[in-house]
């Protein structure tokens, strides 16, 4: 009985550890330039300002406002992932895994807030996921030929 509980606990911990490691390895992908910047500008996304506020200023985190900003950015980017320059209008398995990871990290953020633990790490991780989504959308858009229409013009018409 004790051994089974021990194996169960360790295995579940290892399972989530491996899932998280895979997600972090995907997020570490390097893009040759910042494809996310035009996407951020065209859609007035706010996660770069959240990251800047969390990283650079030593002030207390405005939890409710930052959560709302990240959630709105997530909704916008997940829509773009599915529909912008995506012929199949479907998420890839990689997108799905990272969307799941976003939800899990968001849940952990709420849990940490409830338990009054440090919130900086999950905030930064959420912004990293959103930046990755922005890079993927930007890369797709920049690789698509729209004749005379620029990437940001195309995004504004969506």
């Amino acid at each position: 009985m004790f051994l089974a509980v021990l194996i169960l606990t360790l295995s579940i911990a290892m399972f989530f550890f491996y899932i998280q490691t895979i997600c972090l390895k995907i997020l570490r992908q390097e893009f040759d330039r910042d494809y996310f910047l035009p996407i951020v500008n065209a859609n007035r996304l706010e996660f770069p300002s959240v990251r800047k506020a969390v990283e650079e200023f030593d002030a207390p985190i405005d939890y409710a406002r930052f959560c709302m900003m990240l959630k709105c950015d997530f909704l916008a980017l997940s829509y773009l992932l599915k529909n912008a320059a995506n012929e199949s209008h479907r998420y890839t398995p990689q997108d799905r895994l990272l969307i799941l990871y976003f939800h899990l990290t968001y849940f952990m953020l709420r849990l940490r807030h409830f338990l009054r633990f440090e919130e900086k790490t999950p905030f930064l991780r959420l912004t990293a996921i959103l930046q990755f989504f922005g890079n993927v959308v930007g890369l797709r858009v920049s690789s698509t030929h729209f004749r005379e229409v620029s990437a940001s013009d195309y995004l504004l018409t969506l």
């Binding site: 992908q29 390097e30 893009f31 040759d32 330039r33 012929e87 890369l139 797709r140 920049s142 690789s143």
Partner: peptide, 21 residues
């Protein structure tokens, strides 16, 4: 090695994210 300004030069890691029309 990353090359700047060309989609063809995107890293192999990122290239799979492109959806070709």
């Amino acid at each position: 090695r990353p090359t700047v300004g060309r989609v063809d030069g995107t890293p192999a890691y990122a290239r799979g994210n492109i959806s070709h029309f």
